[in-house]
Amino acid sequence: MGRALGGSLAAAVLLLTACGTDASPTAASDASTTSPDRSASSGNAASTPSDTPSASASAETAPATPAAPPPAPDGPPFPESTDPQTAEPEGDWDLQLVDVRLGEHDGFDRVVLELSGTTVPGWGVAWSKEAVADGSGDVVPLEGDRVLTISASGTAMPEPGSFEVPARLGPAGSVAEVQVTGWFEGYTQVFAGVEGAERPFRVFTLTDPPRLVVDIADAAD
């Protein structure tokens, strides 16, 4: 009987031990559900995702702010069209034409009108089939297939020492010839004869000294 009692006590001890072992994981699981252990989750973040997005996750899912396009080299971007471009001068119309330059660059050919005075020049630039001089209406003979007419506004009547006209420059790149014809009622006119079809161009000004810059894009391949 002593052996039977001892066996019963041993069995009871084993049964209590087994019940205590089953209770611990259940309690721990409940606690992690209601209040996550930050140290544990940081060590195993990939296997236990949180219901609340972290700061890094919010940054990844937030809409991105569009980045400003990078500036084009040496000037604004070329437009996609070949439409005429115009701008009004700013200041008194006191500009004098000092020099005209033509150069070939990577991706475009450039015509520069350098001026003196205080005004920011305006412009009217457009493609045409012929070079027609302001005032007289005469057609100016010009090499090339198409004509880009450049009219710088804000210019005063030429004074002694200003750029002598008429003048011819070129060729350079796709520009077969440039003709500087002169001044008429505040506008200084320049014609660029270009080989091939019309293509986009961009117009902008530079300062110190005042300059009007016209870039003619290379023809598409």
Rank of each mutant, 00 (worst) to 15 (best):
W127I: 10
W127E: 10
W127P: 02
W127M: 04
W127T: 10
W127G: 02
W127Y: 09
K129H: 10
K129M: 09
E130W: 12
A131T: 08
A131N: 05
A131L: 07
V132M: 01
A133S: 04
A133P: 00
A133N: 01
A133K: 08
D134F: 12
G135S: 09
G135Q: 07
S136M: 06
S136P: 02
G137P: 15
D138S: 15
D138E: 13
V140N: 05
P141V: 12
L142N: 07
G144R: 03
D145L: 01
D145E: 13
D145Q: 07
V147S: 05
L148R: 00
T149K: 15
S151L: 13
S151R: 12
S151I: 14
S153G: 06
T155K: 04
T155G: 14
P158C: 14
P158V: 11
P158Y: 04
E159Y: 02
E159Q: 14
E159P: 00
P160C: 12
G161C: 10
F163Y: 15
F163Q: 08
V165K: 06
V165F: 10
R168L: 09
L169S: 13
L169N: 13
G170D: 00
G170C: 06
G170V: 03
P171V: 04
P171L: 02
G173H: 05
V175H: 03
A176N: 01
E177N: 09
V178H: 05
V178C: 11
V178N: 07
V178T: 09
Q179F: 14
Q179Y: 13
Q179A: 15
G182E: 06
G182P: 15
G182T: 14
G182Q: 06
G182N: 06
W183M: 14
W183I: 12
F184G: 11
F184P: 15
F184H: 14
E185G: 01
E185Q: 15
G186I: 12
Y187M: 12
Y187A: 07
T188W: 11
V190S: 03
V190E: 08
F191M: 07
A192C: 08
G193W: 01
E195T: 14
E195G: 13
E195C: 06
E195P: 05
G196I: 06
A197Y: 00
A197I: 05
A197R: 03
A197G: 15
E198L: 02
E198M: 08
R199Y: 00
R199T: 12
R199E: 00
F201E: 01
V203S: 14
V203W: 01
V203R: 11
F204Y: 11
T205W: 02
L206N: 12
L206Y: 01
T207P: 11
T207A: 15
D208W: 06
P209W: 15
P209R: 14
R211V: 02
R211C: 04
L212M: 02
D215W: 00
